[in-house]
Computed example of a mutant assay.
Amino acid sequence: MSKGSDIRGTWKQRLAGKVVTVLIRLLGLTLRCRLEDPHGIRQLAQPGVPVIWIFWHNCLIAAPLNKVKFSGRAPASALASASKDGAVIESVVSSFGVKTVRGSSSRRGVAALIALKKALKAGEQLFVTPDGPRGPRYHLQPGIVKLAQSSGAPILPVRFTFSSCWRLKSWDRFRIPKPFSSITIHLDQKIDIPSKLDENTFESHRRKVEDTLRQGVDDLPEQEPVS
């Protein structure tokens, strides 16, 4: 398969995405979802206001289900990897009204960064999983900080907690909420990244964003017993 067709996705991958979407929507009908927004971040999610929403990769079911609840209906784009999995994700998020930019740190990274900056400049919201597409789990890649630094758009961390869920044995411990359980969406205070940073200060801001998004996480890799 050529790189171009891999990025666009095959009809099988698009079909798989549609099937996954139906399953997610059916599951969503059974869930109780509650928004916690102590800092009034939801008010920033207005059409024409560029912001960067971030959440961990293992919350890729909870996020699209609750998109309207925490980010409204403003035009939005999401970053998905230039892989077969990315093609399925692209199909899923498009069903929730979100466009897709394909790329990652290992493939089409520069092109993806340019496309994301263009989307922000056009006033779109962005949705990014900063530990994707292959981890390490809960490690915030520096690209998201560079994007906020160069664009001036604030980073808005979104955390999801589940009353009950299945955790897959994948690299990200992907979470599937159990039917009739509840999800709480936590909106943390926005984080602005200065345009000029030296190496040490850049890493300090990266860690600040990472630590904010790690709050409440109960399965950090460094806390797991060594086998």
Results as ranks from 00 to 15, higher is better:
80 A>N: 06
76 A>P: 02
103 G>W: 08
101 V>Y: 05
22 V>K: 08
44 L>V: 04
4 G>Q: 13
176 I>T: 11
145 V>W: 00
137 R>W: 05
93 V>E: 05
184 T>Q: 04
131 D>V: 11
6 D>L: 12
170 S>E: 09
3 K>P: 02
141 Q>G: 14
226 V>W: 06
169 K>I: 04
180 F>H: 02
37 D>G: 05
189 Q>Y: 10
14 R>H: 15
177 P>E: 07
118 K>D: 14
151 S>K: 06
93 V>T: 09
48 G>T: 00
134 R>E: 14
32 R>I: 13
126 L>P: 08
130 P>M: 07
67 K>N: 10
115 A>M: 01
19 V>F: 15
187 L>P: 03
128 V>Q: 06
114 I>M: 12
83 S>K: 05
118 K>V: 07
214 R>K: 07
114 I>F: 11
200 N>R: 12
12 K>N: 05
226 V>M: 03
15 L>F: 15
59 C>N: 15
43 Q>G: 11
155 I>F: 00
111 A>C: 00
94 S>T: 09
125 Q>D: 01
173 R>C: 06
64 P>S: 09
162 F>H: 14
18 K>M: 12
104 S>G: 08
63 A>D: 04
69 K>H: 07
214 R>E: 01
42 R>C: 02
185 I>L: 04
83 S>Y: 03
198 D>M: 01
50 P>R: 01
159 R>K: 04
